[in-house]
Simulated assay, not measured.
Amino acid sequence: MSAGKPGKVSAALKARVEAGTLDADPLQANAAAALDRVSAELSQTKKSRGLLSGLFSSAPEAVRGAYLVGQVGRGKTMLMDLFFDQVSIREKRRVHYHEFMDDMHQAIAAFRKSAHGQGDRDPVAAVVKPVLAETRLLCLDEFQVQDITNAMLLGRLFEKLWAGGVTVVATSNTAPDHLYENGLNRQLVLPFISALKAHVEVVELDGPTDYRRLKFEGEAVYQFGTGPEVDAAMDRLWLKLTGGEQGEATVLSSLGRSIAVPQAAMGAARFGFADLCEKPLGARDYVRLSHAYDAVMLDHVPQFDRVRSDASKRFIQLVDTLYDRGVKLAASFAVPLDELAQDSKTKAEFARCVSRLVEMQSAEYLAAGHRETPVET
């Protein structure tokens, strides 16, 4: 990155500001510059590795990553989107922090049950090895240490990732010094926190404006009825949610399967009802979706009867998952909420779902951030 010339992340951010998609924000500009530095250094080490390949067997030193911290709605996810899209290396992976840690715990459990795990081999080293083989950049969304099982694993796991040359970029609502605050045996996590701060640049994004809240301010997130007027209203809301971007089709990976996303932009995803509720998707798929996006738009939710039993069950599960995570839902319904279920059996199944749908259009729900753990019901 030459002097005076903005990096790719800064350029992409500036283009959105100039197009009116985003408002200029000096904290976001500062974070983009930090991400440009990470991207440039990763690109440089990529060239160095190519030149020195075969001469040295040791892993390269990890590029110092970045840790974007701030309250909800300050643009962390949007900046991560720009960074991940712009960074030039292929060996990159983006995953929600909790999903990554769950994968590691499951891999460790599987290793211990295997023949390889019966001796003195270190299970953490064993499960990190395939990660190192295919990952030089690990992007973690919503880094948040909340339970003792993750807290106990963090130090050994990330020590081996960094030693293996993996660069970590993360977003979080919590500054490193406050991770696992008041947690059980927190003193055991302090060495990891010190190591984290040594391996990442902490970038604060705590400006006064909650951009996520502004997307929904004054908007009716539900439309009722069918036809071009309803579709046009949904199109207008979509463009407000995405800052004027139509979005692009993408794919989410979930337990080795692929979830097609017809439109995605600026932390929002848009689906037709059939895309999510008439395909063989399950709870884990909806959890994956809730981790990937702040807002979900669902077009053409029908009225339900017993003929649509499977679709209605998936719809209820989808709403429960989005609600538990605090994800915002915009949707068009063929009929009013209290008429979604046609017969008495379906109405009984829909009672809680309708109650949650009512709450999810409230100003209080729309103003709140993501929930880290499912709420009690």
Rank of each mutant, 00 (worst) to 15 (best):
D85G: 03
H116E: 15
A62K: 01
Y67I: 13
G75H: 04
R112K: 12
A110L: 10
Q86T: 15
E99I: 01
Y67Q: 12
L52H: 08
V63Q: 06
K76W: 11
L55G: 06
S58E: 12
E61T: 10
A109I: 08
M80D: 09
A109R: 10
S57Y: 03
V87L: 08
H96D: 07
S58M: 07
R90Q: 14
R94W: 05
F111Q: 06
M104P: 00
A115G: 02
R74M: 10
F83T: 13
G54F: 07
R121M: 06
H105S: 01
G54W: 06
A115I: 03
E91Y: 02
M80P: 14
R74I: 04
G75K: 03
G117T: 06
V72Y: 06
G65Y: 01
G73Q: 07
P60Y: 04
A59C: 10
F56A: 13
Y97V: 03
L52D: 12
L79W: 07
G65N: 05
I108M: 01
Q71C: 02
M101L: 11
F100K: 00
I89N: 01
P60M: 07
M104C: 15
R121Q: 15
F111Y: 14
S88D: 15
I108L: 04
S114Y: 03
F83I: 12
L68Q: 13
E91Q: 14
R74E: 05
R90E: 15
L68F: 10
R74Y: 02
K92S: 08
S53K: 14
V72L: 03
G119S: 11
A110G: 10
S57N: 13
G65H: 02
M101E: 05
